[in-house]
Nucleic acid binder design. Structure first.
Lengths: 134, 134
DNA sequence: CTGATTATGGAAATCACTCGTCAAACAGAT
DNA sequence: ATCTGTTTGACGAGTGATTTCCATAATCAG
């Protein structure tokens, strides 16, 4: 699994919103504060909305806010919302992707690696991460 | 960390050579047996040679063979030889890559994830993997 | 020595995916 | 109705992975 910049932005974004849970925050503000290109961030928060991690509000006084408490959002949630999976290769997601025979000896390794990675990332949430928790 | 096809090919290649440790094997043969484009495989075995995982022999009766016993080659060795690192992002390799401030709260997570991944992959060697071990 | 064999190395074509922009459409608030 | 801000889709540059090709160097067999 490669953490793409998109995912990195998404994490920063949620990190920022963790400090402003009350009212919706506008994309412009997040973009400026977190040094993310605004139009790119628009795409990202959309994905997060569809994944029910953020909630969106149109019109004036609109913007985005967390759909749940920071403690209930894990790093794995975000990564899966952005990249679909946290697996190291297609093989670990869909065995049909193996172009060689189904008797791929390495396959169980990828499966286990994926499991370990997911378990770890599931354990990290945004209450732990957010500086206010200190 | 994303397992690239190049790395996948490299693993298959070593898997094949694990069954023929005596005399050198020609690239053509490995390519055909393992369904890998020959000219691409040439590049791959070169990398593996430079990483001292394979040994190369030129001229007739030449080819490639394992530089050490399968038990002494780990999956991590191969991945690092091919991709440079098994980390999920640059951030976990070189902190200078963090374009945001050095106070990146997520950074320790990537470091730990990288460590866990490497530990696991270091424990898998080609004697375990190779079917003849059964 | 000569020729056949095989690896080495570089350049370059192709392809897919990530990153990022833009503009038009849609919806809520006043 | 208008302003504000999200939604959506299309688009393009850039980057890296994948792959091929070719010229060159090393080695072995005769």
């Amino acid at each position: 699994m490669e953490i793409t910049r998109q995912t990195d932005y998404a994490i920063r974004c949620i990190l920022y919103l963790s400090g402003k849970q009350d009212q919706p925050t506008v994309v412009d503000e997040i973009a400026q504060e977190m040094s993310i290109p605004k139009s790119f961030l628009s795409k990202i928060v959309q994905k997060l909305s569809r994944a029910a991690i953020l909630e969106s509000f149109r019109g004036s006084k609109g913007g985005f806010k967390l759909a749940r408490k920071p403690a209930e959002i894990s790093l794995l949630d975000v990564i899966e919302a952005m990249q679909g999976t946290a697996a190291a290769n297609k093989c670990a997601v869909d065995k049909a992707q193996c172009n060689l025979s189904c008797t791929c000896i390495v396959h169980p390794v990828w499966i286990e690696l994926r499991k370990q990675t997911e378990d770890y990332l599931r354990g990290i949430n945004f209450e732990n991460l957010h500086p206010k928790a200190y």
